[in-house]
């Protein structure tokens, strides 16, 4: 599967404080998540493993070329507390033309699986007493991904910044997300 630490390089994402950027938090959580997934026997690769920028369209292209079993984007943002798990909303019922889906609706055939995985991840987060919300979002580039796609966002208010930077919280979130993905994989595999 592909883990996408959002933002990077000049694209700092949310600037929580003068030297605390979303792009660094996402990379940190993504690395932890990769380790947790690998510990469960799931091959996971990062779309970026250092600080450089990748345009959103390119992120989707890189992911689609590898035909992963899941794409997961990592974000960090405000306001709120805990973790928000996003699944895409498709623009409308899109018809394929000669077998080709519109770029904006590449997610359509696998949206059900995306929702199932998001549900499993949310349940695991809650089991670990982490406040979790399952939400829909018009979040780029989820709609352009041909594999099941979700995004997880660590949320905090600016006044509670230390919680976002806490290695303990980041590890707990990565563990719960990996556990949710592993469960969903088993369930979806069993259904097939």
């Amino acid at each position: 599967m592909i883990i996408d630490p959002s933002h990077g390089g000049d694209d700092k994402g949310v600037v929580f404080a003068p030297h605390v950027f979303e792009k660094d938090l996402t990379l940190s959580v993504a690395r932890l998540l990769r380790k947790e997934l690998q510990d469960r026997g799931i091959a996971a690769h990062l779309l970026r493993d250092s600080d450089f920028s990748i345009p959103l369209e390119r992120r989707a292209e890189l992911c689609n070329q590898q035909r992963p079993s899941l794409y997961i984007a990592v974000h960090a943002g405000e306001p709120g507390k805990g973790v928000r798990v996003y699944t895409p909303i498709l623009p409308a019922a899109q018809q394929s033309v000669n077998g080709f889906l519109p770029w904006e609706a590449a997610q359509a055939p696998v949206l059900k699986n995306s929702n199932a995985i998001a549900g499993a991840v949310t349940r695991e987060l809650k089991k670990k007493d982490i406040k979790a919300l399952d939400m829909k979002a018009f979040l780029r580039p989820l709609n352009n991904i041909v594999a099941p796609a979700i995004a997880v966002e660590l949320a905090a208010d600016r006044s509670d910044l230390h919680s976002l930077e806490s290695a303990r919280l980041q590890t707990a979130v990565a563990t719960a997300v990996a556990s949710g993905i592993a469960q969903a994989r088993n369930q979806l595999g069993a259904r097939k």
Partner: peptide, 13 residues
Amino acid sequence: GHVDLMNFYQLSA
């Protein structure tokens, strides 16, 4: 940096 502006938003969605 996050929410899509390229798409036409369908009111139903």
